[in-house]
Design a protein around this nucleic acid. Structure first.
Length: 482
DNA sequence: AGTGCAGTTGACTTT
DNA sequence: TAAAGTCAACTGCAC
């Protein structure tokens, strides 16, 4: 007689606390196997990058080192989830699978549907738990805020782990050696992965770093310290939104730093708000939220796209942000918005050409935030106002001395502050002061002119009947009802 | 002391 | 979470 087991299926929930699937699995009579699959089809999808996989891998390692004392370990497979389940079902009889709902891209959604179908035909129960404040299957945003708040105020789950009597799962899906090697290393320029790190950031934010949260949030340099910096941990589930929310709210410094802390808590709310949009319609990965914008054409200049990707546009603040993001995996919100604004509005390149590039660079890539956000900044929602950032203004406002610029663009270190935001304004006289050749690219376009053109184009398109009709649909679905 | 005026500030609108 | 434009009120200053 084949032995029955349950499964805890890990996805973007790489933690051992406030974890509903683990908690439920512990309540059952049957012992359980913990499964994580590096799925080739997902890995090959252009939204995925090495840094994501490394972050996942090391998060899993940390969990495993803690699970060892209860004789448990995550079975890490290099195969599709369905293959993983099939294999386990041959060795054992799977009774129930516990996991979190995933508000992911089209391919994860299809993967889930295909697994659901297979579970059903094999009489396997699949229990999916609600993730953070994201509601599945809702038609409008009525009462959404209230539901979110009630999730935030529910007690966090205190997970306990019993000793397992199951032998380690044997399977033929071990990570290919080159893949394992690739994932084992971890660049020091990225935030370190795992649950412990998440709590460290949260603690230091509340203790001291967070006091200037509001003041520094828009500054590319200062925000790196004054922001909580928990985004990668939220994205891969090293902590839950609720854990972060309750920690900040209950912290002894909460009354002292009420303004900045509340500012941070508001953003936890927005976090879920955006994921909720994607949960309802994950086609936003590849199609304009407002379908009326599908008809809009772009010049899609490959040369400009490449300059943008590599941080060589000739606009210092833009290039500094892109280079910093490439190196560290993080840049603050305003600068992300500016990067999108430059590409899609000034450079007239479709957001579809830049979305995966940014997804790969963001260590905190979260599909549910990424696609709605990039489209909002690109102006293809037709409901929000078009935010056309003036990079020179942003640069002067948020990096007045050009310190951030100079940190990331060595070519500009000798440039005097009066030209650091607009080096193209240097004449041969100023350029003559450089000992060596001036290697930073000179901007070849008139920023004011291209901004004006972009403004006319994107606003002009809003008048189209299809855009207006779509705007009504979007408002009905995604906006909180009064 | 009052007037004219360029320049500034802020609220509000438009793109 | 933008920026530019518009307009009226206000300010400082010369005469």
């Amino acid at each position: 007689m084949t032995k029955e087991v349950n499964i805890v299926w890990l996805k973007r929930d790489l933690r051992l606390n406030d974890h509903a699937p683990f908690h439920q699995a512990e309540q059952e009579e049957l012992d359980y196997i913990i499964l994580y699959c590096f799925e080739p089809k997902l890995i090959e999808h252009p939204d995925t990058s090495e840094r994501h996989l490394q972050f996942i891998y090391h998060s899993l390692q940390e969990m495993n080192s803690k699970l060892r004392e209860v004789n448990r370990s995550i079975s890490i497979c290099y195969t599709s989830a369905k293959e993983g389940f099939k294999h386990i079902h041959k060795e054992y009889k799977i009774n129930t699978v516990f996991s979190y709902q995933e508000s992911g891209t089209q391919i994860t959604w299809e993967r889930d549907k295909s697994c659901a179908h297979w579970f059903k035909t094999h009489n396997i129960r699949w229990i999916e738990f609600q993730r953070d404040g994201i509601l599945r299957g809702i038609k409008t945003r009525e009462k959404w805020d209230k539901a979110w708040l009630s999730v935030m105020h529910q007690a966090v789950i205190k997970n306990g782990f019993t000793f397992s009597k199951l032998p380690a799962l044997e399977h033929p899906y071990s990570l290919p050696p080159h893949f394992k090697e690739q994932l084992s290393s971890y660049p020091t320029s990225f935030q370190k992965p795992g649950e412990d790190q998440a709590w460290k950031y949260l603690a230091s934010f509340c203790k001291e770093r967070g006091k200037n949260y509001n003041k520094h949030i828009s500054k590319p340099a200062e925000s790196r310290r004054s922001c909580a910096r928990i985004s990668p941990y939220l994205a891969w589930g090293n902590i839950s939104i609720r854990q972060a929310y309750q920690y900040v709210k209950a912290h002894p410094n909460y009354t002292k730093y009420k303004r900045p802390f509340n500012g941070m808590l508001t953003r936890l709310h927005w976090h879920c708000h955006f994921i909720q949009k994607f949960e309802v319609e994950c086609s936003y990965e590849t199609e304009c939220i407002n379908r009326g914008y599908e008809e809009l054409t772009y010049s899609n200049n490959e040369d400009l796209l490449e300059k943008w990707k590599t941080g060589n546009t000739g606009i210092p603040i833009v290039d500094a942000c892109m280079r910093c993001l490439t190196h560290t995996g993080w840049i603050n919100f305003r600068m992300r918005a500016m990067l999108v604004s430059i590409l899609c509005l000034h450079f007239d390149v479709s957001w579809k050409k830049g979305a995966y590039h940014l997804a790969q660079l963001f260590l905190d890539y979260e599909p549910g935030i990424h696609y709605p956000q990039i489209q909002m900044q690109a102006g293809t929602t037709g409901v929000n106002t078009v935010r056309l950032y003036n990079p020179v203004k942003q640069s002067k406002d948020h990096d007045p001395k050009g310190e951030f610029i100079k940190k990331w663009i060595p070519e500009l270190r000798e440039v005097p502050v009066e030209f650091i935001h607009e080096p193209w304004k240097m004449t041969v006289f100023e350029l003559a002061d450089f000992k060596e050749e001036f290697t930073y690219p000179m901007l070849e376009m008139d920023l004011e002119k291209v901004a004006r053109k972009a403004r006319e184009k994107i606003w002009g398109h809003r008048k189209h009947p299809k855009v207006k009709e779509e705007a009504r649909r979007i408002l009905a679905t995604h906006v909180r009802q009064a």
